[in-house]
Design a protein around this nucleic acid. Structure first.
Lengths: 83, 83
DNA sequence: TGCATTTTACCGCTTTAGCGGTATATTTGT
DNA sequence: ACAAATATACCGCTAAAGCGGTAAAATGCA
């Protein structure tokens, strides 16, 4: 159900952001304002720019209520060490 | 089981990367070489730098076999439009 | 105890992300 | 059809990401 992102399909984040923004009824400028970023980078993200900064992308994903998860074969072992 | 990352705990990626690198028996330089990035940015990521570029981070996560997933209340609707 | 590896922490340098501004399509609603 | 909102696509500027080099501190191993 969740969308998997790898180094090879990084640009697939663009359509996800676009879909969620449309569904939220937001223009690019409106979303940019909510996320606290510039309008240009929203445009760039939706067009698959892969060199966006992490904090910038997460500000946008957060504004759209999109969650991000890290997983892998030994992730549960890491989770235990954190408790 | 998976680790959730938000805009507020972005720096939590650092410990995840560090744990996986150690488990893989890699030095920072070795990981940087495999990922095709500089040693400095591996150091930065592990120390919670949040302004790393997306492609740089994913190159590192990929090298460590860490998967990233996007999810949310209407993500399944997006997934259907893509088929 | 030494010796090698790794880590931490700087430094300059080059490249570029992100910004607002602007101007032209394109879309949308009336 | 017209007008308003939005999207696309540039531009120049400033701040900073990422790089390799270096050196000292910490770690690990024989």
């Amino acid at each position: 159900m969740a969308v998997k992102i790898t180094a090879e399909n990084l640009e697939d984040i663009g359509p996800v952001v676009r879909f969620h923004r449309k569904r939220a009824g937001l223009s690019r400028i409106a979303l940019a304002d909510i996320a606290g970023v510039g309008k240009t980078v929203v445009f760039d993200i939706e067009h698959g720019k892969t060199s966006v900064r992490l904090n910038t992308l997460f500000a946008v994903l957060n504004a759209l209520n999109i969650s991000v998860f890290l997983d892998g074969p030994i992730m549960h072992q890491f989770a235990e060490t954190e408790k």
